[in-house]
């Protein structure tokens, strides 16, 4: 499975190399596009020293962790959100006649290696924030855990978005609010949002575990919403539950396609 996936990535990369656009240029542009979000944070902190009680470097830390997880998923999983366009053009069938899982084929579909620039951007911001905040490994061990948790959560979200497109063939764009919206939400400390929003993204859609809950632990801060200490460590469990739900939804989506033919 893993081997097939990387083989497909390699295939799409070579296919993209057929076009003369410079690899370096596209990566650079991806880097710059992703950096707009950082620029916004910097502009905000040109006007204030704290946002909801968090300093610039703390916000950059939360941003960097979310961005690293998200851009990795955006590169390696997000291609799945073209399901409805494949259904409309009839190309989904060509995936289904192959002896390889449709999920593997679709997440690798038209893989763009030029998105790596965005991952690099996120990694640099996270690296900067870790250094600037002087985080050490006593609490910093959580950082790789939270990035992995974030990858699983965002990967599950993209899969759910892909599964939803089996039904939402008329308006596949709706899922953008869900995927990119989740990313937008997790770029800032959840302390800025209303209590009900935060409750929703903690107990229903576990976005709080991408960076907020584990981030509070790394930064050694209390939750302004007063959740108990152990929720800082609940991320991996929440991510696994979401991944399970996404896997079931995906199976259901494929089944729906095969039973309706649309």
């Amino acid at each position: 499975m893993v081997r097939t996936y990387f083989l497909l990535l390699w295939t799409w990369t070579r296919a993209a190399a057929a076009y003369p656009a410079s690899f370096a240029l596209m990566n650079l542009l991806g880097f710059v596009t992703a950096a707009i979000d950082v620029a916004v944070i910097l502009v905000i902190f040109a006007n204030t020293t704290t946002l909801a009680g968090f300093s610039r470097d703390e916000v950059l830390f939360l941003y960097g962790a979310a961005a690293l997880a998200f851009t990795i998923c955006d590169t390696f999983v997000s291609n799945i959100d073209r399901v409805s366009s494949h259904i409309r053009t009839g190309t989904l069938d060509t995936f289904l006649i192959r002896p390889v899982s449709a999920w593997i084929q679709l997440t690798a579909d038209r893989f763009q290696i030029t998105r790596l620039g965005r991952i690099l951007q996120a990694a640099l911001v996270l690296g900067y924030a870790i250094t600037a905040l002087g985080l050490d490994w006593r609490r910093g061990w959580m950082i790789p855990v939270m990035v992995l948790t974030g990858i699983v959560i965002f990967g599950a979200l993209w899969t759910l978005a892909g599964a939803a497109q089996f039904v939402l063939t008329d308006a596949p764009e709706v899922v953008n609010a869900f995927t990119y919206g989740s990313y937008q939400l997790s770029q800032y400390p959840l302390g800025i949002y209303a209590r009900d929003v935060v409750r929703g993204v903690t107990y229903v859609l576990p976005l709080a575990f991408v960076n907020w809950q584990p981030g509070l632990y790394v930064l050694g801060r209390d939750d302004p919403f007063g959740t108990p200490e152990y929720t800082r460590f609940a991320g991996p469990a929440a991510a696994l539950v979401l991944a399970l739900v996404a896997a079931l939804a995906w199976r259901q989506g494929v089944r729906h396609y095969r039973s309706t033919g649309s």
């Binding site: 006007n47 020293t49 704290t50 302390g191």
Partner: peptide
């Protein structure tokens, strides 16, 4: 909007 609210609360 929540981001701007947080900013305008600070400033």
């Amino acid at each position: 909007a929540y981001i701007l609210i947080a900013l305008w609360q600070a400033r």
